[in-house]
């Protein structure tokens, strides 16, 4: 396989790994699906609609986010946000992320 393709694949893997963390972080404030996707894209997190919506539903099923329908501009929108449990989960996850970053940087720097 061409080098660029390999790098692309691995990078995708990395990015996939942080999607949930980023989604949860963005949901501290209520967002609807489309606005969430746009915000994430602005911050450099690429995620397809086809991945985001099912993810949101899974998170809701796991009871860490909650949803409600709101009517604005004559458009019905489904808003998602973290609930209490979700906020706790996010905090713990952020800690885990810090640990991962530290240990990875340490490993990487060690090799140089």
């Amino acid at each position: 396989m061409k080098e660029e393709k390999i790098i692309e694949n691995f990078t995708q893997e990395l990015k996939r790994g942080i999607i949930t963390l980023n989604v949860l972080n963005e949901l501290i404030e209520p967002e609807y699906g489309y606005s969430l996707a746009t915000k994430l894209q602005e911050k450099g997190i690429e995620i397809e609609q086809n991945t985001l919506y099912p993810l949101l539903r899974r998170l809701e099923k796991q009871n860490i986010i909650e949803s409600s329908w709101a009517l604005e501009d004559s458009r019905q929108r489904k808003y998602y946000s973290l609930n209490e449990k979700g906020k706790k989960v996010l905090e713990k996850l952020k800690l885990e992320w810090k640990k991962i970053v530290e240990s990875t940087n340490y490993l990487l720097e060690g090799e140089e």
Partner: peptide, 17 residues
């Protein structure tokens, strides 16, 4: 179970897009 809800959301998203 999810049909109506997903329908609504999908339509809303497509209209936004």
């Amino acid at each position: 179970k999810n049909r109506k809800d997903i329908e609504k959301e999908l339509k809303s998203t497509l209209e936004d897009m």
